[in-house]
């Protein structure tokens, strides 16, 4: 039981991801972050999308809710409202976060519910052989875009910044140490936190490879960049479109009251523990 390492977050099932998949790096960073946060498996609920990252539900030993495509956030919100003592994380791919279920990202950011959304962004629907998603760059050829993607991709960081997220960060799957710190900061943040995680897909994304990322990525220097300014955060979020450089780190973090903390009924015991008995609400004429 008491394993003094991140290995306590392993189940008996080994990952089925492709060798070299960015999911391994994200998985390791997630487990390490939980470990360093002194969380035990039973104190964490991870709500998973489906797809490659969603399969992590079977490999990662915490309470897991393996949901539907695009629908990992609503159960995460419900779980947090129901049991505020849980650390609640949603693990989603770019398809589920920025395509199918985009409204849930926007609105939970707006509500500022205290959950963390980790997006495995490999710019493809990889489990289904690599079709284009909302983050696939224009002109990219995939099975569904044989003549090149026409649509402009979404900028995920701008999206959550404009939606009111109180914590917005970008990490890289293959920089485990940096990503671990980001996830720790995100989970520790009181309010809605969004970490977009750049992730190579060795099988279906031949453009945005590990080497490609290594060339464009640089880390935000916390001495030079202060993450407390929304306008500056927006500028940083647009940097890749302007000069081809891709900063990683915390773009924006603000103190904002969480949704739950403003609901008096959620004070005291967690909702699931509140007594159900002894209510007689019928109002006589």
């Amino acid at each position: 039981m008491a394993v003094a390492s991140a290995a306590k977050f392993n189940t008996s099932i080994s990952p089925t991801w492709c060798p070299g998949c960015g999911n391994y790096g994200i998985w390791a960073a997630l487990k390490q972050a939980l470990f360093e946060l002194n969380l035990e498996p039973h104190q964490v609920l991870i709500s998973y999308d489906i797809g490659c990252c969603g399969n992590g539900a079977n490999f990662t030993r915490t309470y897991a809710f393996h949901s539907l495509h695009g629908r990992a956030i609503p159960p995460a919100v419900g779980a947090k409202l129901g049991n505020k003592n849980l650390a609640v994380i949603a693990v989603i791919g770019d398809g589920g976060a920025y395509g199918e279920g985009i409204q849930h990202l926007i609105h939970s950011a707006r509500y500022n519910v205290d959950i963390t959304v980790l997006v495995h962004n490999n710019q493809r629907f990889s489990l289904t052989t690599g079709q284009a998603t909302a983050t696939t760059p224009q002109k990219t050829v995939t099975l569904t875009t044989p003549f090149g993607e026409i649509k402009k991709p979404i900028n995920p960081l701008l999206l959550s910044l404009d939606s009111g997220a109180s914590f917005v960060a970008r990490g890289f799957a293959n920089d485990g140490k940096h990503l671990t710190e980001l996830i720790k900061a995100a989970v520790n943040h009181k309010g809605f936190s969004h970490v977009d995680i750049l992730q190579p897909c060795v099988s279906f994304n031949k453009e945005n490879t590990n080497e490609w990322y290594q060339n464009v990525i640089y880390k935000l220097d916390s001495h030079k960049y202060k993450a407390d300014d929304l306008i500056r955060a927006r500028e940083k979020a647009e940097e890749f479109d302007k000069n081809g450089k891709m900063p990683i780190g915390i773009f924006y973090q603000a103190e904002r009251q969480t949704y739950e903390s403003q609901i008096p009924q959620l004070a005291g015991e967690p909702l699931y523990k509140k007594s159900l008995q002894g209510v007689n609400c019928l109002v006589k004429l």
Binding site: F65, A79, G82, L271
Partner: peptide, 12 residues
Amino acid sequence: IGTAIGAAAVGV
């Protein structure tokens, strides 16, 4: 419905 399911899953 998703949010209700999430809350029900934790016992509410």
